[in-house]
Amino acid sequence: MLHRLRNNDSDLQSVYARKLALQVQEIEEKETLAPGNVYIAPPNYHVLLEKDLSFSLDSSELENFSRPSIDVTFASAARVLGKGVAGILLSGANSDGSKGLKAIAEKGGLAIVQDPAEAEVATMPAAGLRLTPACRVFTLQKIQDFLTSLL
């Protein structure tokens, strides 16, 4: 999930695809979550997860001045995946995602924030840590190790 300009196409997907051995794609509505894929939230839509693991897109009001909002997606993933989801908040300039991270922790999932001391903009991970004090605080290196361990 990345906050970015609305009404703009971007090359984000190909930027990631070039660096990763995984399949990278911008989410199409009703697409089903499949293993070994990296999904990028499309600009200007909220992303929700259905019980059958398909994505629903939603162009309703901004949340935390954001669409896509991390809170919306995290809360939805927490409800559907429970213990089976990990949420990671990285560097960011507002507190979007902190409520969603809390929802993930409450449903037994893994809540992680980037170490605010290391983050380029600490606001987002710091807000996550404030709302979920028990979450794990990882450096980028540790986040990378964690993600690699999932593969």
Partner: peptide
């Protein structure tokens, strides 16, 4: 209606 969105609304 897709449920995830309905629940949220």
């Amino acid at each position: 209606y897709a449920r995830a969105s309905v629940y949220r609304r």
